[in-house]
């Protein structure tokens, strides 16, 4: 007989309902508008490290659609249309991401704050997390400081060969090959995330420009940094935020650079979201935005180490 039972117990189901209520209360108190946007989108994401799930064409609607990997582009169109601060709790979908902290279908809390830079938004993210998990201290560490303190090296100075040498000295990596960002990601996931496990609630900010994604890039003491941040709680990556890029031409150039990297890696190029580009061209207010994994926040609230324990039905049994 198939195992039809839920993976989450009644207490985890209740904790999820309580968490969603706390989130909505938090935003209602701040007068931030809850919105909903489509799950099925006409264009996918160009980021080479994210693969969407695709819904084949229906009988009467001809073209295929992408299940959203985050509600970012649609929410930015609302911002450009003058929505003011907005939030959404939405399902997002990513192919190939399954494990103790990943489910291919998951819940994202995403919100945008016109007029905030990424530091102001980090403070609000910390307030939300404390409202959900209880008060606790938090700290900020730049990406550069993280590598200096955790590994004793400067990620902006050291070249790819040296990063590979350090990584190979610490782990069996077989015949892996990659560029500078590849080795930085390897050291981050293998060495620095475990190091962050001892740091409580900690933001990491100002990433290498090559990892800026959709964040603004600025010059900081002679190095270009992307004004992006990640939130870690006890080493669990919980949220990713940007001081958002608002320039349509720069956004188009980044999409095209992403697609060039996709093609070089043998991945299909993705159509650009022309609606987003048109919205940016019309003018999106300066803002910061963040996406936070609700299932992982629930794991922390429940003290569960495996995401399958907080999902009613995980991917394997959905």
């Amino acid at each position: 007989m198939p195992d039809w039972q839920p993976g989450a117990g009644l207490s985890q189901l209740r904790a999820r309902a309580g968490l969603l209520a706390a989130i909505r209360r938090f935003f209602a108190e701040r007068d931030i508008l809850e919105v909903e946007t489509p799950l099925l989108c006409g264009s996918g994401i160009t980021d080479p490290a994210i693969e969407p799930l695709i819904v084949a064409a229906g009988d009467s609607l001809s073209a295929q659609r992408y299940l959203q990997t985050s509600p970012e582009y649609a929410m930015k169109r609302l911002l450009a249309a003058g929505s003011g601060p907005i939030y959404q709790v939405a399902r997002a979908f990513r192919d190939g991401e399954a494990g103790a902290r990943h489910n291919p279908e998951f819940s994202l809390l995403e919100w945008y704050r016109p007029g905030f830079d990424h530091h102001a938004l980090m403070a609000e993210v910390a307030a939300l997390v404390c409202a959900c998990l209880g008060e606790r201290p938090w700290r900020k560490l730049s990406y550069r400081e993280l590598f200096r303190q955790g590994l004793g090296l400067d990620p902006f100075e050291v070249d790819a060969g040296e990063l590979e040498r350090v990584a190979r000295g610490r782990h069996d990596l077989g015949n892996l090959e990659g560029d500078r960002d590849f080795w930085l990601d390897l050291l981050l996931t293998h060495d620095l995330e475990p190091w962050l496990a001892g740091q409580g609630l900690c933001f990491v900010y100002d990433y290498p420009a090559s990892q800026a994604a959709l964040a603004q890039i600025v010059d900081h003491d002679g190095v270009e940094v992307g004004q992006r941040f990640e939130l870690y709680i006890d080493g669990v990556e919980l949220a990713n935020g940007y001081h958002e890029l608002t320039d349509a031409a720069e956004q188009r150039a980044r999409f095209e650079a992403d697609n060039a990297r996709r093609l070089a890696r043998g991945q299909p190029a993705r159509p650009l979201d022309e609606y987003l580009l048109a919205a940016l061209a019309a003018g999106m207010p300066a803002c910061s935005g963040v996406a936070l994994g609700v299932d992982r926040l629930l794991m922390l609230a429940c003290g569960e180490a495996d995401i399958r324990r907080v999902l009613a039905f995980s991917w394997e049994r959905s």
Binding site: D47, A49, G178, D181, D185, L188, H190, E193, E237
Partner: peptide, 8 residues
Amino acid sequence: FVKPGKGQ
């Protein structure tokens, strides 16, 4: 399975 927020 491990993955940074963005990336490999």
